[in-house]
Design a protein around this nucleic acid. Structure first.
Lengths: 140, 140
DNA sequence: ATAAAATAGTTACCTAGGTAACTATACAAC
DNA sequence: GTTGTATAGTTACCTAGGTAACTATTTTAT
């Protein structure tokens, strides 16, 4: 089975298509999917550093810096003073929390539509497989 | 099951990680994964237009234009005269065919390592699931 | 035959990922 | 306490995806 007619080809196409459609939906609340991921994380885990976000999302630090800057420009997050002067601790503002709740509805509806009609077992196998492959990639 | 601790989160992380590692491997033959996809396609299907490539890869035309330009600058592809003056028909050069064969080895070895130890059935379920979800996204 | 619509491709500009090299602070070893 | 090392974050620059708007052709309808 060659790569391109096969497994990875479909996976990449799905990922692109997924983020595209999610971005379309999130436009309703004026967010991009990468911004949503950080807003979600901050709502879940509270005040955090960029490195914590970077580790959670498995995305490099410069990418996090950029997206966080965008969120700050839009006053969805704010600086939190801390002891370690290297760190940049941030949290959601009131406006950020409001945006989170609005976006949550949009994302949940999007997922609901996408998941309807899917066999639960297939989803579990798929998720397990992807996690397995992700781990293997790390060891490469 | 919330989005971020779940299915889509893992899928996006896997895709990022996968292309990252594939790029590392393809650096051996001085290619990026997006370039490899086009080189592969041209080797498989011969002389093609950018729209044909765009449809096959499910990537927008401007993205294809850019990557094709890079390949042309490096003399891996060449223009093919045609009837329709709107079209830009291209094919692999001799150098492009050579690069294809070198890259093919690299990619196949990469895939072999990644796939070893995977249950064939799980892969099939995963691929089927991703294709199913991809189709559903289109209808959204 | 001509006007309208569709198609192929490009350009400009946006988000989003990556690496390499850098600064500034904190920590550890001696 | 000074020196070396590790950590947090940023900057600059690369590929890679997207949209919107455009040009230049071709096809279709009338």
């Amino acid at each position: 089975m060659p790569f391109h007619d096969g497994f990875f080809h479909h996976n990449l196409q799905f990922s692109r298509s997924f983020t595209k459609k999610l971005n379309e939906q999130l436009a309703k609340v004026d967010l991009f999917h990468s911004q949503w991921l950080i807003v979600f994380y901050l709502n879940q885990y509270g005040c955090s550093t960029l490195v914590e976000i970077s580790n959670y999302l498995d995305v490099e630090k410069p990418t996090v810096t950029r997206t966080v800057n965008r969120l700050e420009e839009r006053d969805l997050i704010e600086q939190v003073p801390g002891k370690d002067k290297r760190e940049r601790r941030i949290q959601l503002t009131e406006s950020g929390v409001r945006t989170f709740h609005e976006a949550k509805k949009v994302v949940e509806e999007f997922e609901r539509q996408l998941m309807s009609g899917m066999a639960q077992e297939d989803l579990e196998v798929t998720q397990r497989t992807l996690m397995f492959l992700k781990e293997k990639l790390k060891q490469l």
